[in-house]
Write a protein that binds this DNA or RNA. Structure first.
Lengths: 344, 344
DNA sequence: ACCGAGAGTGACAACGTTGTCTAGGCTCTA
DNA sequence: TAGAGCCTAGACAACGTTGTCACTCTCGGT
């Protein structure tokens, strides 16, 4: 009935505290008190207000509240790809911590694109999120300086921030990769290939460094042709793996730089006669059910997310001082594929 | 230096348009015009404003903007568990559509708890999200009525809404399960077990119905002991599977009601001498690499999310009319485990 | 009967932005 | 040269909430 020609895109003319106050025959502020459970309202008044709220279907407008109070009780999470199984547990862990602190989670994927990361981060800052958890795609985060100065708490996860000083939570990528490669060496391998992500990605670079360190410590050479960096797209990885296995000095084992690489390598090896050893960075579901089961360097994605989120809220609760670099250890999980002996 | 005793938890006293205006020596509204790219500002004025913005590190406060404009350019996504691999591609698809429409995504997990779902949904409504995509955990959504009336567009995915009329996007759970079980029957099986999720979950109920339909159509009986519903927790599923396989009338094939069940059943079967056929609802990564590779009824999670999000924005763009029920077909992917012959 | 204390309540400004309206300066035409 | 018309720019109110403050009323003590 009061349906005018077209409400011209307002959110449906929701009732406000003013409407509730009018209906209950009380002042605006009294409604506010009831809604927020503040003291100083008689039971009778409270009841009248509650009835009016019920009758009108009133719901407090948190946008206005945020404007007035200055805090949004929400944090932003920027990650690389929501669909990547590695990030599922991580974002779930961040969400749980946020929930425990009464905050909502706003998130988005950067798709590994630095510009898109920046766009997303700034959009979140414009929403005035209280804090940010960022898995960086880019390597220059100076654009965040005004935000940091303005008090937006920020914690980087999985990869460090570039060119700014900020808290960061990492896995021990270097040590994990070194352990994994050393494991292969201990099982007799001398020619070991490495397939990893783009070199500009911190985790990829660290893992490569770990690979080289293990080889060097064992006094083994590293042929250029044994190292393949670049995309983790299946076809790229597939051809890289095939090249490693067919050159003049074919490798007898492969260290895979992350879960997506590992999976593709498993597919390549499955078509092969000759057994080739494999250790992958990142655990993944069903790794134990494959034949051979896949030996991995496991990092705890949930722990990574939980630690970062807790650090963030610690900051929001006023923790002062130096930025921290927290590094979580990794764990070698031997399952079979990493214990195969070398076969030429 | 201007660091007062304690800024008492305001977000760091960020510069406002007023500050920018003062610094640039222009009026407040002129700054607003520049920030929003509105016409009617001379290049010279615009430059002065831009410089002031740069110098102060100004960033528009979207909370205030939202309050004034009435739309938040954000949508809420409530799902069951971010860490479940089924929901990764789904939420990623929703995010991409949101992004294409210039909206941010706020999300949370209900953890399959109806109360938590309601809490989350209402929190999102208080934020005045423009719309909601909900994978419901509960079966009574009347609490959403005031919101719907107020114009919050809502689309349910994967499972229908309870006791309210709303758009919904589903997979053909009934047909998919029927096809899968018929496939087993076509390969000679007569005693087929079903392991599924809690019966109150719509998808689980529909898939069970499909199972029964296929059996009935083939003139086969269904023993009570062949049907196990309840939790998808690995130990529950494990003992259910063991019971199916060891009773007086042991089954020769199992239909698994979702991806988590399938994975656990695969583990149980791996320890077994006797080959048991298996078809699972939901595809999952590496299903093709297991031995035998796992035959599944695949539903397209990304397509589910994309369809729902597009329907949502269609509504937000003013699409009137009846609520829709969109049902996406499933696809049988034979890989080996579903084609095993019965062995007693 | 008077005063002070305290509890309940509401008027009002403020948060930072945008929409509306109006003022002033300019160009163009008659 | 006056008037119409356009372009730029700013003053002001409004969005819905919360913090501050002041008012009224009741009650107890003297």
């Amino acid at each position: 009935m009061a349906q005018t020609a077209r409400p011209e895109y307002r959110y449906g003319n929701r009732p406000t505290m003013k409407d509730v106050a009018a209906r209950a025959g009380v002042g605006l502020k009294t409604v506010s008190r009831v809604v927020n459970g503040e003291p100083g309202v008689t039971p009778d008044t409270e009841r009248r207000v509650q009835e009016a709220i019920e009758a009108l279907g009133f719901r407090r407008n948190d946008s206005a509240r945020v404007l007035r109070k200055g805090r949004t009780a929400s944090i932003g999470l920027v990650l690389e790809d929501l669909a990547d199984p590695f990030y599922g547990p991580l974002s779930r862990a961040v969400e749980e911590v946020a929930r425990a602190h009464g905050a909502l989670l706003i998130n988005g994927s950067s798709a590994e694109d630095p510009d898109r990361e920046q766009e997303l981060v700034l959009a979140l800052c414009a929403r005035r999120v209280d804090g940010l958890v960022v898995i960086p795609a880019g390597d220059d985060h100076r654009y965040l300086e005004p935000e940091l100065k303005a008090g937006v708490a920020t914690v980087f996860v999985d990869r460090p921030a570039g060119r700014i000083d900020a808290d960061v939570v990492l896995s021990d990528n270097f040590g994990g990769a070194r352990d994994g490669v050393a494991h292969l060496i201990a099982h007799g391998h001398r020619r070991i290939g490495f397939i990893g992500d783009k070199a500009r990605i911190h985790t990829a670079a660290e893992r490569l460094r770990g690979y080289r360190a293990a080889m060097t410590e064992a006094g083994l050479p590293v042929h250029d042709s044994w190292v393949a960096l670049g995309s983790t797209a299946p076809d790229r990885v597939r051809s890289a793996a095939e090249a490693l296995l067919s050159g003049p000095e074919p490798v007898t084992a492969i260290f895979a730089g992350n879960n997506r690489v590992t999976v593709t390598v498993v597919r390549v090896l499955a078509d092969l006669e000759r057994p080739v050893a494999l250790v992958g960075f990142d655990d993944f579901e069903l790794a134990d059910l494959l034949r051979p089961a896949v030996t991995v360097i496991a990092q705890d994605a949930a722990q990574l997310g939980r630690t970062a989120a807790e650090r963030l809220f610690h900051r929001l609760d006023g923790a002062p001082g130096m930025t921290q670099r927290i590094e979580l250890t990794t764990r070698l999980v031997p399952r079979g594929s990493g214990e195969l002996p070398p076969v030429n």
